[in-house]
Design a protein around this nucleic acid. Structure first.
Lengths: 192, 192
DNA sequence: TCCGTTTCTAAGCGATTGCTTAGAAATTAA
DNA sequence: TTAATTTCTAAGCAATCGCTTAGAAACGGA
């Protein structure tokens, strides 16, 4: 067996996530990926095939990280609506504090849709399905524990929360904190 | 007086709007603008100074057109909440039918924010302020005519509707019609 | 140790990027 | 008609785009 790679593919993809998240697909050049990933163009192309190949792996990596880090509290929730509120507020805070100043990579990519193709759209759909499923699970538990009425249409609510979350992904970048608080307050008040 | 321009600046900017709307700022080249605007590069640079100059004029033109065409029913509303529902549904239908398949140029640009600068952000803020103000006016009338309770916090509702509209701008491109209907249904049910 | 295989570096490919410029064509006042 | 002024066409600028390649370096098995 010959020489082995001097880098870990998952590790360099994490760097690529940061670049695409910040500049978008069209705004990211192979030269910048080369610099930020710390490997040269030959390695990029031999590991991922193309710029789009890097992007697709970056989307997959991003989804996994969101699931592990950002959705963990919701996944472990025992059905308190307060956990949903905390999730929405944590998202806003993460954007506004500068920790994730570029919002949601998936939402950003959805807005850029024309430039991408079917494979990208599939990844976006899978991500949104994940988010909807997580909301649905919390809402199911909330109904069971009586925080929602027995008549509540929880599937409808899950789609609603998905839409509101994406609304935050846009507005968190532009609106004032008070406006975002208003948005979240009414969003939560709608669940009953 | 010498030779006069063979094109109307507003007319060619309308073409530019379409291009930026479809491909985003980074994804649009001067060559494509040249082709779609129907004037050559010299004319583009002598009229608008730079690619960003074209973009800023395109944003201003887009805002004016949204106000004239898309917001006119809301601006003429006498305060029926049903008019707000119709606005949201018209937006979804416009995206899904393919009439405006790329959603909202302002929301798209907001997601692209890092690549742009302060001047662009100012335009986005002004646009969102316009939308919020239009919602606020309808809600004020709705309160006066009794469709909302006297205790309703209409400023809070206006910020909420702004957020939900931007949520539609993202999700209308990806989700199924039923999911979008769920979103709108709960959004409207929250107003009381 | 030498071979076979792979990764690495670094240069370079043609095409395209945003933008500029030289000179011809067009328009109006004198 | 002439002179002054501007727009137009078309070519071209350096820089960067995504991607490829030649050859040196690094490994594991024999």
């Amino acid at each position: 067996m010959p020489r082995q790679k001097q880098y870990d593919e998952e590790a360099v993809i994490e760097k690529a996530v940061q670049v695409f998240w910040k500049h978008g697909y069209a705004g990211t050049s192979i030269r910048e990926l080369e610099s930020k990933m710390g490997i040269n163009q030959f390695s990029i192309y031999s590991s991922f095939g193309s710029k789009k190949g890097v992007f697709l792996r970056a989307l997959a990596n991003y989804k996994r990280r969101v699931k592990e880090i950002f959705l963990s509290d919701l996944l472990n929730s025992d059905g308190r609506l307060e956990d949903i509120r905390k999730f929405l507020e944590a998202f806003v805070d993460s954007v506004r504090s500068g920790r994730t100043p570029n919002g949601c990579l998936m939402a950003n990519t959805a807005m850029d849709l024309d430039t991408h193709d079917q494979e990208v759209k599939v990844q976006l759909t899978l991500f949104f399905e994940l988010l909807q499923a997580v909301f649905l699970e919390v809402l199911t538990k909330a109904k069971a524990r009586g925080e929602l009425s027995p008549q509540a249409n929880i599937n409808q609510y899950a789609n609603y929360l998905l839409g509101c979350t994406e609304g935050l992904a846009v507005t968190a970048k532009v609106l004032e904190k008070e406006q975002l608080e208003d948005f979240i307050a009414v969003t939560m008040a709608a669940l009953k």
